[in-house]
Design a protein around this nucleic acid. Structure first.
Lengths: 237, 237
DNA sequence: CCGCTGTAGTGGTCCGACCACCTGGCTGGC
DNA sequence: GCCAGCCAGGTGGTCGGACCACTACAGCGG
């Protein structure tokens, strides 16, 4: 391979790795706006002087990171680079963590969730509060664990959104991913924790309706803390 | 909208996507222990009945997620699945976020960093405290922005580790990634914020040495909050 | 016994072909 | 003139095979 005669650092790592950095840099520098369409795979490969296979791997990597989006038959596009896009695969952390790692994850969630709930108490709109109440009611109206879980997730998601920080909401979404919750809660709920959970959710809602940030923070921290303590005991014993 | 009425599970998405899920599931179910070596690419491809190219893309995806690690000439291995492994590429979020998103990111960091610093005040060991002091001294002993930045990062990393939650430390690491800090601080530091930063760092250290969690929380929150406010003003004006 | 070397096997890269899908223009009827 | 439907071109998705770069280890020679 030839190089530009004066370049002392032609190749750092693998070809694919370089392609990833190049495209990432292009986006960081603003050469590629969010939503913009990239050249075709074949063209990109030619531009960087690599094979289409390697370019495809680079694109796959950026797709996983949530930076690019490939639409079959249409083209490759830059995502909106919203928090949700970039944190979409954050859930795998929760899905593949085990043992002490799970407790750490719940501790992080407790910190963020309590703060988010406190913020939400101050900022939530009547419409959002109504939505929260809807999920709360639906959660109490059924005994199907699947449905309860779904409304539970939606309940907290709505609160996180009401906090006004989309990034935090996206992170919490990952920390509460469906499979994660299902895994941890399977045992937790079997111990008849339904009643306790309902009480805690009611307390959170009460604090939100009263616009009391401190009460909301405490209620949310206790809510997550309950699960955290249970899980800690599971591991310890 | 509804599907899967007729066929149980013919083919959900693309071939590569299925391969990713399969391998991820194998790890989640414990069939592949952390550090274990996988079959060769060619073998894996044959097992799942797909081409090696597609399998390579799947492996690349899992590599980016921090789940797998490919060693040229040796083989493919499952990572230790530590927080650091899975959150390694979390930094891209910080690197590619702009405008209001950056403020949100700093807000999340402020919440986590203040809590982590408070925890560290209660748990830090003499050795760790000495290390923190070393970085503090090195930071004050030079005027080279690069060096200051490096020790600044190490200063906070040491504190996060002392908090005893590796997952939180890894997330904070991502939220403080080198390029992110460099981007935001370029302007911030140019306004003669060196002195203020040093004062804030000193305050954090003082709280740690005094084992005062509340003071540590306040100092850390103020430290990050300063940058946050500055950035907010930059965007507002 | 140690160190060097050769080699088999691994991931990394490239090529060229074909398939599946989407898009937009064109055709044809109304 | 307008619109539905068809159709061709272009796009990402998949495949198979070949070769390169690197690693690990067995075997040789000192």
């Amino acid at each position: 391979m030839n190089e530009t005669e004066t370049e002392p650092a032609p190749q750092r790592g693998t070809v694919t790795q370089r392609a990833i950095e190049r495209i990432k840099a292009m986006i960081a520098e603003g050469l590629l706006e969010p939503g913009a369409r990239l050249p075709t795979e074949r063209e990109l490969a030619a531009q960087l002087g690599i094979s289409r296979s390697s370019m495809r791997e680079a694109i796959r990597a950026l797709t996983v990171m949530g930076v690019l989006e490939a639409r079959h038959g249409s083209g490759i596009y830059v995502t909106q680079l919203q928090a949700g896009d970039l944190l979409e695969n954050f859930g795998v952390v929760a899905d593949l963590s085990r043992g002490p790692r799970l407790v750490e994850l719940l501790e992080v969630r407790r910190i963020l969730e309590s703060t988010a709930t406190a913020l939400a108490a101050a900022r939530i709109t009547p419409e959002q509060l109504a939505e929260v109440e809807r999920h709360l009611a639906a959660m109490n109206a059924t005994d199907d664990p699947e449905e309860i879980l779904a409304h539970d997730l939606a309940f907290h998601r709505e609160i996180a959104l009401a906090a006004g920080n989309e990034t935090m909401a996206a992170i919490l979404e990952g920390l509460s991913s469906r499979t994660f919750r299902a895994r941890v809660w399977r045992g937790y709920q079997e111990e008849g924790a339904f009643a306790r959970t309902r009480r805690e959710h009611a307390a959170i809602h009460r604090a939100l309706a009263a616009r009391d940030p401190e009460a909301a923070r405490a209620a949310a921290a206790a809510h997550v803390g309950e699960v955290e303590e249970w899980l800690r005991a599971q591991l310890g014993g």
